[in-house]
Amino acid sequence: MAFKTIKRPKISIGERFYLKALLGGLVITMKHLVLSIIGKSRSKKELGGSGIGVTMQYPEYRWDKHLPEYYRGYPVLVKGEDGRERCVSCQLCEFICPARAITIKPGEVPADSQWNKVEKAPVEFEIDMLRCIYCGMCQEACPEQAIFMSQGYLLTPTDKKAGVHNKAKLYELGGTKQGLVNKWNAYK
């Protein structure tokens, strides 16, 4: 069976006033408070805390090398080993994007291009990072392995326009990715 019925615990009249639970909670938070002030927070050492509590003093110290492989930073566009821009502007990421952060203007690959076999490429590809919620659905929806969630998280736009990443910026952030499937080969 997919679900399990759990019986609600019977609580006595004494417990129903929740006074003990309430006071117990107050004691726990007070304990944390006292331990923080005297600098003995739990797992402070393991987490590399500094000063009071377990906080890592962010701009000076960073967590970067502990970032897990599956960490979802800002989305980027990548180029393949052959230098081809992998995005073919199928607009599936635009469709799946729950925050509607992606806007793509599709266009044609010029006939004299080395990659005119692909026919289609984005003219403009914008991700509004003020809307992006870093869910990674674009990466999952992408049939061309073109959009990836990077490990980057340092984004500080100073105005709203700078918060919108255009195609050039996305490729600059993404760079080249190795070991992707080369679908648009001669035998496709």
């Binding site: 923080s36 927070s41 509590g53 906080t55």
Partner: peptide, 13 residues
């Protein structure tokens, strides 16, 4: 400050 201490953080500093 108190909130951060309760949560083992530093708070505004």
């Amino acid at each position: 400050r108190v909130a951060s201490f309760i949560q083992d953080r530093v708070g505004p500093n």
